[in-house]
Design a protein around this nucleic acid. Structure first.
Lengths: 352, 352
DNA sequence: CGATCCTATGTAATCGATTACATGAACCTG
DNA sequence: CAGGTTCATGTAATCGATTACATAGGATCG
């Protein structure tokens, strides 16, 4: 009886159609859908049947107009093509779309005027919330964004003085752990391949590196810091630089601020004749899928990417739905060092 | 004079505010924004100034409600985490967002009920168009999607009988070209590492492989086809299978249906002691960034990913904006074989 | 039994834009 | 100068929901 044949003509059913079919007013239909407990069981059944028969779905534009929400959140991501962010996005998407939100992805890798367009969109109140996957945006349009008065949550890159909640791992601690691992293996000459100096992420990982060296009583010789920018290319360049060094002065281990650079470095070193980890131990950071595919597989700090995205999204939802923000707490997720094949004790011939 | 200090209070300006400030009716404001040429120069200036002073932006929900559009397109993608799709998405995003559309990304890698939710959303008229990056969805909800009467464009995977325009490369031709390259180098024993048998993509690449062998008069021995599913893991498995073969019967070259498998295969072969390309030439398909990073760099068919995404998006925009579809043409984009280091003539010891 | 309260439902205002139609001024034109 | 155009603008209906307020009928109670 409830199984009608296709009645579906071109224009989608509207609430008035359902009301007519059920013999009630539009208000009752709306109530039935929003708060089923306030209508009598009998009407409820009639309405729900009518909803089914007309395959009615509320028009979101109309609803959003009325309740003054957009059900859209803006996600600012440095670069979608980066597998690290791709997985964070999945976590965000899972959580947000389950709660009925759509997400507009602002890919900052695109032309810069696009970034401006996105910020404007937010300021114009066309998004209910913003998720920042990097400190980038906030620095340029700080004020605009702030007094647009839109809930905001940050993830991945922890910004110390920020006025909004953030979801991150302990970058300093994780970097320290990575370097401690190398020290425990017996390495004393440990280089660091940095990220772009302008990011907070970079400063924190550098800090962790320094702390580990310091607590082990190893002097952080300045020359052991090689500067990179998170790209494969700079990993390759760092590799060339290391190859140019004579074996006696070459470090026996290296901590890279992310996996992509670590992999570029390893490739370059290998084609220059070095054996990894025998001649140089390498530990990376992030735990991108490829780190487990390369040869040798990469020892690295793996970040809980999906969870990072999911809890940032959950936090934002809380902010958006709660009356006047009271949430405001930072969340720190655990990152773990995964031991694979790119590290081993320094070989005898490299010891001094 | 136009540079006012911040007047921005909580509620965003609405069209009535602008009208009041400019001393005109709301209709005139709307017209000024939509078709500036129909209002007198003098009013136009007054209105535009008022727009600036109030930093007015039309409320999209209200507009969409009125004009019965959503300005949203749904993009169904097999897996965002896959770098191949990530770049296509960028092309789509560039084009679509420049035209003012938002995109909802339906990541089919997620839980299957999410896929259903997305299809429902489209059927409920909450999207103006759909972009399919794989044949997957269409096959399961074919009818629903069709009579939802929403403009649809396919990309990447060409579906022969489809009733909607598609933007693809010539998969058969490209695969044939890849294999021809191996043949030209002198190989006569060429294996094929397939994609998932259920996809049309796979059948087309297999077809190209067969055509190339046939035109060279090489019998396609059945045993040379190894089945995979586009993942790194099956590349590894294929590598193990090849290692198990004695060198005399082992093929001297292999064409993989995508790069990820090719890379998995190469890694495995290398750790099994084979030298690539010396002992086995490999050509891949897709041209993902990593193909240029691995060791040796991968000879592969590179697909114009960004353009693929951009023209699919452009085609969809045409469909959505044109009165009653008249567009309906498939677009074929060129894919090119890029020669890198994973292929060379068969070595003497492997010849028979 | 009349006052009071509750429950279930209906009526109509509202969200903020777009746009068909109405209006009125200015300008021709014969 | 009556009547017809054209041009710029205003009035008000409309898109499709949500929800404050009104109302009617029934239960409860002193």
């Amino acid at each position: 009886m409830s199984k009608r044949t296709k009645e579906s003509r071109r224009p989608p059913a509207k609430i008035a159609d359902v009301a007519r079919l059920a013999g009630v007013s539009v208000a009752t239909v709306s109530r039935t859908l929003a708060r089923p407990e306030v209508v009598s069981e009998e009407t409820r059944n009639r309405v729900l049947a009518a909803v089914r028969d007309t395959s009615y779905t509320p028009n979101i534009s109309a609803r959003n107009l009325r309740v003054r929400k957009t059900m859209v959140v803006l996600v600012a991501v440095p670069n979608i093509a980066n597998p690290f962010f791709a997985e964070i996005l999945q976590g965000i998407d899972d959580t947000l779309s389950a709660a009925g939100y759509g997400l507009v992805i602002a890919n900052l890798a695109g032309p810069p005027e696009k970034e401006a367009r996105y910020v404007d969109l937010v300021c114009a109140g066309q998004a209910d919330g913003v998720l920042l996957l990097c400190g980038h945006v906030i620095r340029s349009r700080d004020r605009d964004l702030r007094d647009a008065h839109v809930p905001l949550v940050g993830a991945c890159e922890y910004i110390p003085g920020a006025s909004f909640p953030q979801v991150c791992i302990d970058n300093v601690g994780a970097a320290r752990e990575a370097v401690r691992h190398l020290i425990k293996l017996g390495h004393t000459s440990i280089a660091y391949l940095s990220g772009p100096q302008s990011t907070i992420l970079e400063r924190q990982r550098l800090e962790g590196y320094k702390q580990a060296l310091k607590e082990a009583g190893i002097a952080a010789a300045g020359g052991l810091i090689i500067s990179g920018d998170f790209t494969f290319r700079t990993g390759v360049e760092a590799g060339r630089a290391l190859l140019a060094l004579s074996p006696e002065v070459r470090p026996t281990a290296l901590f890279a601020a992310n996996d992509e650079m670590a992999i570029g470095l390893i490739k370059t070193l290998q084609s220059g004749g070095l054996r990894i980890p025998h001649d140089l131990s390498v530990v990376g950071f992030d735990g991108i899928p490829y780190a487990d595919y390369c040869e040798p597989t990469l020892t690295t700090i793996v970040q809980p990417r999906r969870e990072l995205g999911a809890s940032a999204a959950a936090e934002l939802i809380a902010l958006m739905t709660t009356e006047k923000s009271a949430v405001r707490k930072d969340i720190e997720l655990p990152a773990t060092l995964i031991l694979r094949d790119s590290t081993c004790p320094p070989s005898a011939r490299n010891r001094n």
